[in-house]
Design a protein around this nucleic acid. Sequence first.
RNA 1: GGAGAGGUGGCCGAGUGGUCGAAGGCGCUCCCCUGCUAAGGGAGUAAGGGGUUUGUAGCCUCUUCGAGGGUUCGAAUCCCUCCCUCUCCGCCA
Length: 425
Amino acid sequence: MLDPRLLRQDPHGVAERLARRGYAFDATAYAALDDQRKTLQTQAEELQAERNQRSKSIGKAKAAGDDIEPLKAAVAGLGERLDAAKTELEQVQAELEAIQQDLPNLPDDAMPDGADESDNRVLREVGTPRAFDFAVRDHVAVGEGLGGLDAPTAARITGARFTVLSGGVARLHRALIAFMLDTHTGTGYTEVNVPYIVNADALYGTGQLPKFGDDLFRLVEPEDYYLIPTAEVPVSNMVAGEIIEPERLPLRYVAHTPCFRAEAGAAGRDVRGMIRQHQFEKVELINIAHPDDSTACHEAMLASAERVLAALELPYRVVDLCGGDIGFSAARTFDLEVWLPSQETYREISSISNTRDFQARRMGARYRDAETGKPRLLHTLNGSGVAAGRALVAVLENHQQADGSVRVPDALVPYMGGLRTIVAA
RNA sequence: GGAGAGGUGGCCGAGUGGUCGAAGGCGCUCCCCUGCUAAGGGAGUAAGGGGUUUGUAGCCUCUUCGAGGGUUCGAAUCCCUCCCUCUCCGCCA
């Protein structure tokens, strides 16, 4: 949600900034609707004030023992006029709100311009893709060769876009998660374990609802419960409705959770393997920050995620998402893309966003300003550190060996019980 | 699942259908007193929206006592529905 005051004071400025991300905001229509709101609100409040005043004087008269019947008669009809005024106001307010809920975040000035992902700015490439002296297999072939990756069985249990992992591959997945959690808690993150089912309010708070409900799995009962699409939803909402004392900031949380996505509109994309699943696991970083610190926190989160990829000895690049590719709630997003030898390309493995006060406003997440003592909106940031499923894919592909085995990167060896190579079961 | 109790400001806690955004306390801020400290005295201290305005100042106004409906001229207070917390029982990992 954008600042309604800014929207009112400078709708055309907002429209210009939103245009950078390809969103057409009709500032003129909005301003006209808001003028209407202003008139109706003044009208309704005047009636309300009159009623309050009259009711109060009836109370006084009654306390004084006076006859209140004539006073009551004088109020007759006021209630109906008030109701009518309120109804009219509510309609216009609902229209305004519908527009506001739909507006994506204002981009950071530093965000690159561009129409789609091909316009993203590559900030740097780290590590060198390995030169293979044998035919590279994709992660499905490697995993199946090890007897540890099985989509057909998952299809029988559930359907498309699920995978059964087993043996060394399953353990590798668990090792990745444990390693990532330890890495982040080692740099000051607090590990949290959160609900994987959230209510509609939480999803509204982080911006998935009302606009992106199609990509969520929703429970039949209770019907306003949903499976989380990312840990960002439960973890960020930990501060919903709260006023945080500033000395506690920034709050830094790390959570390992499954993520459930309907992948509506992704039919036909990445159908082979574990790149795009309905269920995957992720280690997520959340920062709840003072507005003055959020940019620095964003950089630090990026460094934290990069540390993981470096330790896993995976080549990657850092990308600054352009206006055409950035998400609804984000003001600025850095993606980490890991090298996949089978595709000879970089694929997203982490997305790290500063939403500034966009989510905080929706959630009502505030801190107490040290100087004024007044509550002000926090900044919220989220980033994968990193996606476990895609990390597994990257390790299988990048560290595969000619004989079909997979080398365990040194950082993971302790988490594999000392195992240095995963071989076929 | 059954029975009961309860949800009020940063926290604890009182509250009769009207003069209640709400006693009292804690905490916090400022001031006074005390040659440090402690104790004492005084004042202040909820949030959100709108209007006015150059203004996050002031002024005017509306809303908010778990959420949503209802009764009433008027609801923290009465009625209905829902949510959450706690206690006991049952069940269960």
